[in-house]
Nucleic acid binder design. Structure first.
Lengths: 245, 245
DNA sequence: CGTAGTTTTGATGTCAGTCAAAATGTGTGG
DNA sequence: CCACACATTTTGACTGACATCAAAACTACG
């Protein structure tokens, strides 16, 4: 593929502080930038990679959002996570070099591609990059544990409240409003991710609206009472900030 | 702590092929052995580490089994996983250096302690060890994804069948029988792990027994019809082998 | 404006949870 | 070795949260 090497540096990227280069020295970042492959922008429903395909890269989200899902032997999709800017996609391929899920764009989006071979070489040269990789993987594992607790031990209302709260915090961390944002995913995706049906999602959104906690209009969400939303989630305790990946 | 450095080598360990040293050269294994701290054997309910404690080590299970759980703000335990010989415990601490769960022994057990500082240094010296770490972390993530699907999309019977099947495969991989084994965990632990109640666990065990698929007597399990058990799990498709961690 | 996709709303059914008690197992001290 | 207390597991009756089924309302797009 004739895609040119990136000309933009992580140094200028507004996401640098929450992405892979966080904590690296500027000369180390230069080395990292050299291995980045820029991919052309993606449109809604474009596939970043497919389940079972051989995989040689990780991807950092530059803009837009993504959904990862596993398709089982009966053809049912099971959503594993959503990804926002600054997050790393494709960590599930580290074990075998094959993707265990499919990842598609939920809207117009772009990513930085990080070829695994180059990344591994670089980790040998830059011990702090290796540490950063381990930190990111540790974060992914913690986030998965939070999802396990959510799915194993929480009611439909708590699941939906947690879902909104985690979006709120993530958008806030990106510098956007944490009380007003648009959902880039369909109700179907939300339901599948939370292990409930679309009807239940719809009804719980309606309840939260009736209680005056949120206002919702199709994809648009406005959180009127953030603290009450947090109170619903409170017993879950674990940090919703990292629940989305 | 005056615990002496290990005198036994990974080279002699029957678990070497499924544990951290897998694929390393013998001189590299020697370096790895040097950083291992042997901990004294543990008894049932002994704590390996506690949630929120600072953590400077990973642990590889040498014998016995462990249970990890998160305690929420209401004091409820939520079991995250079980660990058998050859598996690495404590990966959740990689992000912040603090454990996010508590891990206790389910029976008499022993571990190899791997201080993180030494392990990181060694990864710089031995690139293939770094790769192996990434592979193990990737496997953990895949295993967590399987749990997410199990909890989000499967019935009580499918959950229990999957649970038994994963134990079967794991014990088989360790060289034990894959159709007859003892459960080291209580019904309460199984229920909590699977996101169902103990009563439901008990009833589903009874059903599987009535159907002649398994025989169960307290902690003892005998699988009469492995293929039927697999058929129940089949729609889930994803590899139960890595579901337990 | 018509067709197809998505979301909401309503009526009904069911799987697993809750509550309660019996059965079984485990440990301790006399 | 037995008696008693306590923990764990099983069984039964009832309930409820969410799923399922069905249809209407809304949106988008050619």
């Amino acid at each position: 593929m004739g895609i040119p090497v990136s000309t933009t540096s992580c140094a200028n990227c507004r996401l640098a502080d929450i992405c892979l280069p966080y904590g690296l020295h500027s000369n180390e970042i230069d080395l990292l930038v050299n291995i980045i492959q820029n991919k052309r922008p993606m449109q809604i429903n474009d596939t970043l990679y497919r389940q079972n395909e051989k995989c040689c890269s990780l991807f950092a989200v530059k803009s837009g959002s993504f959904r990862s899902f596993i398709t089982n032997s009966e053809g049912e999709e099971q959503t594993i996570g959503f990804y926002l800017p600054g997050e790393l996609i494709g960590l599930d391929a580290l074990q075998s070099g094959h993707n265990t899920c499919t990842t598609i764009a939920l809207e117009t989006a772009s990513v930085c591609e990080l070829p695994l071979a180059s990344l591994n070489e670089l980790c040998v040269k830059i011990p702090s990059l290796q540490l950063q990789m381990l930190r990111i993987l540790g974060k992914e594992i913690i986030s998965d544990h939070d999802k396990i607790i959510l799915l194993g031990h929480r009611s439909a209302k708590e699941r939906l409240a947690t879902f909104l709260l985690m979006l709120s915090r993530r958008y806030g961390a990106l510098g956007f409003s944490n009380i007003e944002f648009n959902l880039s995913m369909r109700r179907q995706d939300i339901a599948n991710f939370l292990g409930i049906t679309i009807e239940t999602v719809s009804r719980q959104f309606a309840e939260l609206t009736k209680e005056g906690i949120i206002s919702i209009n199709r994809r648009g969400v406005y959180i009127n009472k953030l603290s009450i939303l947090q109170a619903i989630v409170e017993p879950c305790k674990t940090d919703p900030e990292c629940l989305m990946r």
